[in-house]
Structures are given as C-alpha cells and as structure tokens.
Amino acid sequence: MIDRANVPSVTFLFREQIASFDPGRQMMLISVDEEWPMIRLWVALPDPALLTPYYGFVSCPRRDVSCPRRDLPTAPVLLAGDPARFEQMFHGG
C-alpha cells in the first residue's frame, strides 16, 4: 500500500521496465482503492527479480506459481500493461 501521491513515480518505473523486459506483454501494474489517501498496487512480472526496485512490495506466497484467482484483487484498475491481457485475466474477455 502506498500514498496516492507516489503512484506516478511507481507507474513511471514500471513503464520503463515494460519497455525493457516485457516483449511477451505479460507485465501489469494494477491498482485497488483503499482508505484515502492510500492505494494498493499489484504487479504481474515474468521474473520475480524484477520486483527488487519496488520497496515494500512482496511476492505472492507461492513463488513457484502465479497467484491463485482467489488471491487477486477485486475491482482492479490497470495502470500499465496490456489492456487485452488485463481484460482476459479480470473480466474473462
């Protein structure tokens, strides 16, 4: 969870990583509203080592697999990443 004022800097860093490390368009930065002024950010990364620059972020409890659907956020908003993949993952599109 971070203060909303810090979201633009995380989004910028994430977009830079997408440009450098995501030819398969797997990476996503997702936000979920929390009590004002906080927001919870989730990331989907092809390599757990890419999580290192994000202070305070933690990996899904099972590092050997993707997070189970029940652990994914409800009412997410895509901040960066492939909109088609986001729709497929969260809206079954």
Rank of each mutant, 00 (worst) to 15 (best):
Leu50Pro: 06
Leu79Val: 04
Leu45Cys: 09
Gly56Arg: 09
Leu79Thr: 07
Ile18Pro: 12
Ala49Asp: 11
Met1Pro: 12
Asn6Thr: 01
Asp64Ile: 08
Leu45Gln: 03
Leu78Arg: 02
Leu13Ile: 04
Leu72Gly: 02
Ala19Asn: 12
Ala75Arg: 13
Glu87Met: 14
Arg15Asp: 11
Val7Ala: 04
Leu50Gln: 11
Leu78Tyr: 06
Tyr54Gln: 00
Trp42Arg: 02
Asn6Val: 03
Pro23Asn: 04
Ser66Arg: 08
Leu72Tyr: 09
Pro23Asp: 06
Gln88Glu: 14
Thr11Glu: 15
Leu72Thr: 04
Cys60Met: 12
Gln26Asn: 07
Asp33Met: 14
Leu41Tyr: 00
Pro53Asn: 01
Leu51Val: 01
Ala49Cys: 11
Ala49Gly: 14
Pro76Gly: 11
Ser20His: 04
Cys67His: 02
Ser9Glu: 09
Asn6Gly: 10
Leu72Asp: 12
Leu79Gln: 11
Cys60Pro: 01
Thr11Cys: 10
Thr11Gly: 05
Pro48Lys: 05
Leu41Lys: 05
Leu41Ile: 01
Gln26Met: 08
Gly92Arg: 12
Val32Ile: 08
Thr74Met: 07
Glu35Arg: 11
Pro48Ala: 02
Ser20Ala: 09
Thr74Val: 13
Ile39Ala: 07
Gln17His: 11
Thr52Pro: 06
Gly93Pro: 00
Ile18Thr: 01
Ser31Thr: 07
Trp42His: 13
Asp3Met: 10
Pro8Trp: 01
Pro61Lys: 14
Leu51Ala: 15
Ser31Pro: 01
Ile18Arg: 05
Phe12Asp: 13
Pro53Glu: 00
Glu35Ile: 13
Arg62Asn: 15
Ala19Lys: 08
Arg15Gln: 13
Cys60Asn: 15
Tyr55His: 12
Glu35Ser: 12
Pro76Phe: 03
Ile2Glu: 07
Leu51Trp: 06
Phe14Asp: 02
Ser66Asp: 14
Thr52Gly: 00
Ile2Pro: 03
Ile39Asp: 04
Gly81His: 07
Asn6His: 08
Pro83Met: 00
Gln17Gly: 01
Met28Asn: 05
Gly24Val: 08
Met89Leu: 15
Val77Glu: 03
Ser59His: 05
Gly93Thr: 06
Val77Trp: 00
Asp47Glu: 13
Met89Thr: 15
Met38His: 14
Arg25Leu: 03
Phe90Gly: 05
Asp82Met: 01
Val10Cys: 06
Gly56Asp: 09
Leu50Asn: 09
Gly92His: 10
Pro8Cys: 01
Met27Gln: 03
Val32Gln: 15
Pro48Leu: 06
